[in-house]
Design a protein around this nucleic acid. Structure first.
Lengths: 238, 238
DNA sequence: TGGCGTCGTCGACGCGACGTCGATACCCTG
DNA sequence: CAGGGTATCGACGTCGCGTCGACGACGCCA
């Protein structure tokens, strides 16, 4: 999981000191106002813990950060911009956590896949409020939608590459186009974890979520839950 | 796929006079106003084709149905109530389509599973606007969330029962608790189809979606894509 | 020291959507 | 034609939004 383009969203970078005008904020918030900016972010994440973004007014955010409503607009152009900034940091965090887990896949496939899924899981879990809020506005907000899509695309790509590598070394049988399979599996993870974290719909208990997902991944990729490690030919198989 | 209770949402009842309180409308729309009710529903579904519910005002709905905004409230208590009514009918439609497909599973597992997944697929597809809108408000609207959860629960239950039957007759190996597996697979379907229908995120092309999903289902349940039919012992296997 | 810009702040405005109340007008049925 | 339910809408108050303009505080140059 190395590439996964995180930057490259127009306006996502935090140029703070460097250049004016590039930040998500609407004007360039100069030094002192920096704390306010953070205060707004913190307030948003706190409020999101117990109600959806649509039920949080800009006034709430402003009050929570100790400023008036108009002042809010000095720092962010909208509620959604705040969420986007929050998502940005979560994504960054997730990206580093899951980085290059799949590079040593062949050493111990089940363990490595498990780590990757776990990273996914933790990324969602550690900021579940933000994640759930993003899922909600994804339809409406083009920026959130695109950022999320980019992240997913990164994971899907890494997964697909890993699957192809496993097939090439003979550990996994041929089958579905690797990318299609990767899309399906990553989608499953997203939805399952979403259901697990919101209480919404049928879900598996939080503690076994990773195991259930891993099992489906292994069966779909290897047609067994015990794929052989290294490049040696099958040994304990059948 | 028989159960899945559709009626019985608390808080949905209309506190009007006495008898005909089965509709989602706020008061009982007597004879003549019935067309208006339908007109509102139709307008809603039409408008949802090209913008999210949040960008459709009650005025839009009313105007589209040829009535004034206050009059809208004579028929529905809110925008969400309209969506809920729409979902109701879609669900009903889906429920009948997918009914008892899995009863004859053993005759030809891949074909039957495929039918079931296809039914799921068509249910989403034929009213994609409504489905996508529901997905969006699910977080905010308790009624939609619950109705959806009930439907999913029905499918999950049927799936789990079918998996257990396949295991019992020896066609599928033991493994994950059947319900957990069923949750994961149904979740995958939901998310994959959602991604396919909205242009959101990584997705598989619409024409191969069912095949991809089916493949993952078969591998997860049977550890092969060619499970044997009937109760006869393995024959063309291995 | 006094002028000047810019940062950060807010009061106040206008807008649009919402939900409700009360006044109709339009049937029926008796 | 009186009276009760059906169906409709005008008008109101409220609330959240986004913007504009004014005002104080600070830093910097002359």
């Amino acid at each position: 999981m190395s590439p996964a383009p995180t930057a490259a969203h127009p306006g996502t970078s935090n140029p703070r000191t460097s250049n004016p005008r590039t930040s998500r904020g609407r004007r360039t918030p100069r030094p002192s106002g920096d704390d306010r900016q953070l205060a707004i972010l913190a307030t948003a994440e706190r409020l999101l813990e117990d109600r959806p973004l649509s039920e949080i007014s800009i006034n709430d955010l402003a009050r929570g950060a100790g400023i008036s409503r108009p002042t809010f607009y000095f720092y962010f152009a909208s509620k959604d911009a705040v969420l986007l900034a929050l998502l940005d940091s979560v994504v960054e965090q997730a990206q580093t956590a899951a980085a290059d887990v799949l590079d040593h896949l062949a050493e111990d496939p089940p363990a490595r896949w498990r780590e990757a899924i776990s990273a996914f899981y933790e990324a969602f879990r550690s900021h579940r409020a933000v994640t759930l809020a993003c899922a909600q506005v994804r339809r409406t907000n083009a920026e959130v939608r695109q950022l999320w899509a980019t992240v997913m695309e990164g994971w899907v790509h890494c997964t697909a590459v890993a699957i192809e590598a496993e097939r090439k070394r003979g550990a996994a049988p041929a089958g579905l186009p690797a990318r299609d399979l990767a899309v399906a599996l990553n989608s499953m993870n997203e939805r399952v974890l979403y259901a697990t974290f919101s209480d919404d719909g049928p879900a598996v208990v939080e503690s076994s979520a990773v195991d259930v997902l891993l099992n489906v991944w292994l069966n779909s990729i290897y047609q067994t839950t015990t794929p052989q490690p290294t490049a040696l030919s099958r040994k304990k198989f059948r």
